[in-house]
Simulated scan of single mutants.
Amino acid sequence: MTARFAGRTVIVTGAASGIGRAAAQLFAQDGARVVCADVSEEVAATAAAIGEAASPLRVDAGHEADVVRMVDHAIAWTGRLDVMVANAGISGGLATIFDTDVALFTEVLRVNLLGPFLAIKHAAPRVAEAGGGAIVLTASVAGLRSGAGSPAYSASKAGVINLAQVAAQQLSGSNVRVNAICPGLTETGMTRPTFDYAREVGKADRLGRLNPLRRGGQPEELAEVVTFLASDAASYVNGQAIVVDGGLSSSHPITRQEYGKTTV
């Protein structure tokens, strides 16, 4: 089977853990050379696990000079850039609107929304120069409606969805596609404390119980969708927000009848 990304160069931000790490590994398995970027020093472990097809880089995805350096690094390393995955993000905690200070709200927007904006701004021209390719942004089901994240996180992810749509339009004629994924509850570096705590207290079965699959997602499941959107198989998919949440967002909240049981 031909490797989908043979001869192509990919940047993945947030590659130190979770969806970013899984995506970087899958791109490399499919023939890509991958710049593994993250603010955490753990990104070196991701690159080491991949081998010669990976180049680790410490960057702050919400800092413009770092994003420029990251794109320049990819070009200097391989001479081209074909795919940009803007995946880095932070949660912002669980505070309400009234308990969230401006500094926290601003920081969440800086990383989660300014980061993808900068990725598009500086990566898209280089992807276009290579003949076209793809940009994939990590949004969230929290960006679709309330109930899945803090106010700052939810607002930032709603912005990412709209940014994908706007960018797809403004890149008309460039052969650069821009899409977003909207994960539901997934076991990542950001959510690991929740998963670990649930296991410790014997309540792991309650994670993801509100979606029809009755479980949380794994990073590899999201990585499959990221790489699909970046591949030629998705050549006519553009400006979309693809939800990957086990069916959570397919319904308004209800009291569900258990499978195989009769309601009296």
Results as ranks from 00 to 15, higher is better:
Ile161Phe: 05
Arg209Asn: 12
Glu224Asn: 13
Thr78Met: 07
Ile50Asp: 06
Ala3His: 13
Ser251Trp: 03
Phe105Gln: 07
Val39Thr: 10
Asp60Thr: 14
Ala22Leu: 04
Ala168Gly: 11
Gln240Ile: 07
Glu52Val: 12
Lys203Trp: 06
Pro116Arg: 07
Ala37Arg: 11
Val102Pro: 02
Thr188Trp: 03
Asp72Cys: 00
Val59Thr: 13
Ser231Thr: 11
Glu107Arg: 13
Thr263Pro: 06
Ala37Val: 09
Val111Glu: 04
Ala15Tyr: 07
Ala28Phe: 02
Arg145Ser: 08
Ser249Ala: 06
Leu114Pro: 02
His73Cys: 02
Asp82Ser: 04
Thr138Tyr: 01
Gly92Lys: 07
Gly216Met: 01
Ala54Cys: 15
Ile11Gly: 10
Gly51Ala: 11
Ser55Lys: 15
Gly132Lys: 12
Gln25Glu: 14
Asp60Trp: 10
Gly132Ile: 08
Gly246Phe: 04
Met1Leu: 13
Leu114Asp: 11
Ala164Cys: 06
Arg214Ala: 06
Arg80Glu: 06
Ala204Pro: 08
His63Phe: 07
Val111Gly: 04
Ser174Gly: 13
Ala180His: 00
Glu52Thr: 15
Ala155Ser: 13
Gly217His: 03
Ala119Val: 08
Arg214Asn: 09
Gly31Ile: 06
Ser235Ile: 12
Ala234Lys: 13
Pro56Asp: 15
Gly115Glu: 05
His252Glu: 11
Leu109Trp: 02
Leu81Ile: 03
Thr96Gln: 06
His63Thr: 12
Asp245Cys: 01
Trp77Lys: 09
Ile181Val: 12
Leu114Lys: 13
Lys203Ile: 00
Met190Lys: 03
Ser156Asn: 05
Ser172Arg: 15
Ala44Met: 03
Gly131Phe: 05
Ala128Cys: 11
Ala53His: 15
Gly217Cys: 00
Gly7Pro: 01
Glu258Pro: 09
Glu258Gln: 13
Gly260Leu: 06
Gly93Val: 08
Ala241Arg: 05
Ser172Asn: 13
Ala152Thr: 09
Val244Gly: 05
Leu185Ser: 03
Val111Cys: 04
Thr255Val: 15
Val59Phe: 02
Val39Leu: 10
Leu213Asn: 04
Gly7Ser: 14
Asn179Cys: 09
Glu129Tyr: 07
Phe195Gly: 10
Ser231Asn: 12
Val59Gln: 07
Ile97Lys: 00
Ala15Trp: 09
Asn175Lys: 15
Val243Gly: 00
Thr96Glu: 08
Arg209Val: 14
Val59Asp: 01
Ala130Thr: 12
Gly133Gln: 03
Ser249Arg: 01
Tyr259Trp: 02
Val201Asn: 13
Glu107Phe: 01
Arg206Trp: 11
Gly93Ile: 06
Ile161Asn: 01
Val68Asn: 00
Leu144Ala: 01
Ala119Arg: 03
Ala234Trp: 09
Ser235His: 14
Ala158Asp: 00
Val10Asp: 11
Ala130Glu: 10
Arg177Thr: 09
Gly189Gln: 10
Val136Met: 02
Ile19Met: 08
Leu171Glu: 08
Ala54Leu: 15
Ala198Asp: 06
Ser17Pro: 02
Val34Ser: 14
Leu144Gln: 07
Gly62Asn: 10
Ile11Asp: 11
Ala53Gln: 15
Thr9Gln: 03
Pro193Asn: 12
Arg33Phe: 05
Val176Asn: 11
Glu42Lys: 15
Gln218Val: 03
Ile11Trp: 10
Asn112Pro: 04
Ser140Arg: 03
